[in-house]
Design a protein around this nucleic acid. Structure first.
Lengths: 207, 207, 207, 207
DNA sequence: TATGAATGAGACTTCATTCAT
DNA sequence: TATGAATGAAGTCTCATTCAT
């Protein structure tokens, strides 16, 4: 997996404790960020949800922005881990793509609040952290691109390589669309429905 | 056009003056919002860019959020007006869809900073204003949906009506993708290139 | 006099108001700094003594350190203005030096709390501001050095130029001593007494 | 020697351990205080430099201020011990004064950072500790006063007793001047130079 | 005796909004 | 109608000190 070790400084020496507490912190923060957005959530609220004092919270991070980064990193890893696991299966390429799309959409659906958060607050990160998140996103996109490229080699898909890149990106945003256009997508379709329609459209457009 | 008259209260009686000033205000604000985001832009900065005092600014709005709404409304109307104009031409349906997609993508490209802004800051609006913007967005989507639906009737497109809705939404987000995934889209493709690839994919998937 | 215009940014546009308010601010701050020192005085306390809200206070300065600088600048100017005025009189050189020492010591005595403050808190300034204050101090020292140097030329004083520099500095610190060693100086001597003794010692050592 | 036993409470029973550790503590703290000043140095930093945990540190002191007191006390004793040792020699009085001044200036020079610290941070001590340091300072001054007084009795020096007190204090501050006006003193003179000039001035003024 | 995670009060600073002029 | 000084609540972050282990 990606996992270039996140480096956020901490006053705490016990590394294991850092990991445990940061996980708790992410859980606390995500709940609030989803509800109110990053800017309207105060550190005090996060500390309260975190169940510790403000001082203790700041033993695990340096700035409020660090919390957002931890959250973004966590969300990305959730998707990434699950998707990579699902890819491992042996299937013919077209089937593999169908499955990848399906699994990806299901993952997105299961964490849709997070997805929304990820795409709305990324811009609040500093340059370095934002780049980290973007490159993480790109890794995900590459998974789809690779499958399609393989299909091209096998003559399963009749598009060129550049188009493959566009299609891979389309799949990504169509997944995200399920979250951030939920007012139209989820009002009109069941998840299975939506998956079937989108998958067919994609396959049709490249076969 | 859409334009259910925006209702933001003002101290000023002269309606024409209100409109002129608000347009200036939008221009000032948009520049700053694009650069720094809504939350990190201060009202003082807006007033300065606006070229008036804080007091004067507050004669035209009630809260900072009102400014965001004016901006969002303005952006949406820009897109909407231009797109509706482009639709008016008499062509066969497939050509009409191609043209609509092309024009839409070109509009998006010409105001890509605004697009980004629209999709990142909408959540900072209050419920009422957010719904207004969302419904405006839906109107736009409907333009594409209608063309496709007509194509279905004419047997030009061989998909069903429900799929038409998905395709229309896909077109919308693929246009937006040009802005908010610019780091990959615009790095790899020219606008014309991108338009051609996406249009072909769409047409292929529904023909 | 010195008065290289102090440049501290302000939100306020009316320059005269800035000057008036900053003078009030200095008066408020000095009282507290003298009593509790710079670090132990809170901005809130200063605002209260200042008689305005914290927000208003921060319209006239940028950081707490700016307040310290304004105070230091004000103290220095008080001494400098008064001393330069006293030098203007026409007298023979030895008498001129006696008078300058006397006036300087009297000034120091009249603002001894400030003197103490100046020499204890200067280090809390940033590099630029500290240098400004130090060079202001040096200007003062130069006044004495010049008188002595003139006496040397006139053969009134029989020391060399390098020693003159030391003597000028000695006069400076002996004046300051009246403040920061007050527990011994002021316990044992009246101001007039102290002035006479120190002046005689200086004159004796260079005549 | 002076050394009215310093009384700072400790959790530790083993007195010898206390002394050893406190000496280490002083060494750690002095380095930081000199660099950043008392207020800007955190207890955490001291503990780190000290090489122990925060808890351990607090076994040897009660408050942060205690550390400052230990440091001040240590500095004073360094000067005091060395100076008293140098006085013991048998010489005629004038020579004895010359030697005492020389030795004092040399000591000051060797610990000039400490000197600076002592005179800038003393005010941060509580009343009791501050008085202790001041009286320690006075003991030092007395050394000079006694030599001069003896010279008066022997008719070597032709000033009165009250003036002797002033001269003794002048010597003290002229030594300190070498540190806290170093930007002018040490830029223009070598230590030997400075000592010679100041000593001659003093001797001339009282002979 | 030693560790270091945790506390919590309080510090500095910002900024949307108001209102006397 | 316009100005801009003033408000004051709230935000982020720090740090001396404690205490369970």
């Amino acid at each position: 997996m990606a996992s270039s070790k996140v480096q956020i400084e901490s006053n705490i020496k016990n590394e294991e404790l850092i990991n445990v507490r940061r996980q708790e912190l992410v859980n606390a923060a995500v709940k609030l960020f989803v509800k109110k957005g990053f800017h309207k959530t105060t550190v005090r609220e996060i500390a309260k949800e975190f169940g510790m004092s403000m001082g203790a919270l700041y033993d695990y991070i340096r700035t409020k922005e660090d919390i957002l980064f931890l959250v973004c990193d966590h969300i990305f890893k959730s998707v990434s881990d699950k998707l990579e696991a699902s890819i491992k299966t042996e299937k013919d390429t077209k089937e593999k793509l169908r499955n990848a799309i399906r699994d990806y959409f299901i993952i997105i659906d299961s964490i849709q609040d997070y997805t929304l958060l990820l795409y709305q607050e990324t811009k609040s990160l500093n340059r370095k952290d934002r780049n980290y998140v973007l490159s993480a996103e790109m890794e995900l996109t590459n998974i789809f691109e690779k499958i399609i490229t393989q299909g091209i080699k096998e003559k399963t898909f009749k598009i060129n390589k550049r188009t493959a890149k566009v299609v891979a990106n389309n799949i990504m945003v169509q997944g995200q669309m399920w979250s951030f256009r939920r007012w139209v997508a989820q009002k009109n379709f069941s998840l299975n429905n939506y998956i079937k329609i989108q998958t067919d459209l994609v396959i049709d457009s490249i076969s």
